[in-house]
């Protein structure tokens, strides 16, 4: 066992790191209710006014609407493609199977700016105008990875003997799929979708390169902070975004186990091939 002094030191270290992790997030939530319109500490008093201001700001509304649309579309595409490919990679042995696993993880393993600039040059090369379609394409590309990772991890844990038993009992392929396999992977489908939406809803780097004139919510926030304008509104919007990104993840962790939301560890596992 570790000496007592070391154990105490480690405990203090853990508390300090936790403080480091959560003080900035707590601070954002406090600033959202800041009565003053100047960003300084300590805040003089509390109000919910800025939420209302932000809610009635047409720019914020439009950006929010676009973000939700993009998030939903990207999630739907990622679910369709990611589920199919996860199922195929899990069920069949074919040439290039390992390469697919590695290849699919690239958009998450390479810095976002690479995906962004690559797609941007690609759209320019093909003469495709930047629009909501290009944003969705960019987001879906990395959302597929999250869905794929979640579902294949689950499929690997589900014993294949159950499907075989179902077949032995006379169920046809689609029936086994629907009544045996699907229920067993259902939670990973839900958590995959939640994570994909959270990732898309928060994405800024890829969006910078794939959005035309429209703003998603992160682009609006980035612009406002960059110019130092409408910061009280930014406080309110950003605190809502924190909730919008944390709640789906907390749900996903509850539904499918916390292992399903470790986006880094999982990607590394894949990247090593």
């Amino acid at each position: 066992m570790e000496p007592r002094g070391l154990r105490i030191a480690l405990r203090i270290w853990v508390v300090l790191v936790l403080l480091l992790l959560f003080v900035p997030i707590a601070l954002i939530l406090l600033y959202a209710f800041d009565r003053s319109n100047v960003e300084s500490w300590p805040i003089p008093g509390f109000t919910v006014r800025w939420f209302s201001v932000a809610w009635h700001d047409p720019d914020v509304r439009q950006a929010l609407l676009l973000s939700v649309k993009v998030g939903l579309l990207a999630t739907v595409i990622a679910m369709g493609l990611g589920t199919a490919v996860a199922y195929a990679v899990h069920s069949f042995r074919f040439f290039g199977r390992e390469a697919i696993s590695f290849f699919l993880v690239l958009p998450l393993a390479l810095p976002g700016i690479i995906t962004g600039i690559a797609l941007s040059s690609f759209f320019a090369f093909r003469g495709i105008q930047l629009s909501i379609v290009t944003i969705v394409i960019g987001h879906a590309t990395f959302c597929i990875v999250v869905v794929y990772n979640n579902i294949i991890a689950r499929l690997r844990r589900v014993p294949g003997s159950l499907a075989e038993a179902s077949m032995d009992l006379g169920a046809r392929g689609w029936q086994t799929m629907r009544f045996v396999t699907l229920p067993m992977v259902a939670t990973s489908l839900v958590s995959g979708a939640l994570l994909a939406f959270a990732l898309s809803f928060d994405e800024v780097i890829v969006t910078v390169f794939t959005a035309g004139a429209q703003n998603t919510l992160p682009l609006w926030i980035f612009g406002a902070i960059r110019l130092g304008q409408q910061l009280p509104e930014v406080n309110a919007v950003v605190s809502v975004i924190i909730a919008a990104t944390i709640i789906p993840v907390a749900l996903a962790a509850r539904i499918a186990g916390s292992g399903s939301v470790t986006r880094s560890a999982r990607a590394v596992e894949k990247a090593r091939g």
């Binding site: 992790l21 959560f22 997030i25 954002i28 959270a198 928060d202 800024v204 992160p218 926030i221 980035f222 902070i225 950003v238 605190s239 975004i241 924190i242 919008a244 990104t245 944390i246 993840v249 939301v261 986006r263 880094s264």
Partner: peptide
């Protein structure tokens, strides 16, 4: 904190 909004 890993998943909380990057910009936030």
């Amino acid at each position: 904190p890993l998943w909380a909004s990057y910009l936030a």
